[in-house]
């Protein structure tokens, strides 16, 4: 398993999230994202736990893109991954965002 944490600058989420939410299921080529309130308003903290080793650069690119596309400041995302492709990761992150924006 490989684990790392990124703190990415992002505009604050328009409203506070009421409760934690979870998206996705940990299965081969898939991942789960747990969304919770974070520590700082203008950054998004993302903890990645993945079974695929050596893809940190790609993770950083996908996560930076996500933090730039959405206002996710003030969120803490925790990811359990079983080797999802970047496309699946992006999709799941967008779903997680929609869950807490709804």
């Amino acid at each position: 398993m490989e684990q790392f944490t990124l703190t990415l600058p992002s505009s604050p989420l328009p409203q506070d999230i009421v409760r934690a939410a979870i998206c996705g299921v940990v299965s081969s080529g898939n991942l789960e994202v747990l969304v919770e309130p974070g520590a700082t308003r203008d950054a998004c903290e993302i903890v990645v736990n993945t079974s695929a080793h050596g893809f940190r650069d790609i993770w950083e690119a996908v996560l930076k893109d996500f933090a730039a596309r959405h206002d996710v400041g003030g969120l803490r995302l925790s990811i359990n991954d079983a080797g999802a492709t970047p496309a699946v990761v992006s999709l799941r992150l967008d779903q997680a965002f929609e869950t807490c924006a709804a």
């Binding site: 934690a20 940990v26 789960e32 919770e36 359990n80």
Partner: peptide
């Protein structure tokens, strides 16, 4: 619930990912 992170302590040593629930 998942945010309590009551996860399996046994999966990591075998290289398997855990789930929050």
């Amino acid at each position: 619930p998942p945010e309590l992170r009551q996860t399996s302590p046994h999966l990591a040593q075998l290289g398997a990912p855990q789930a929050f629930d």
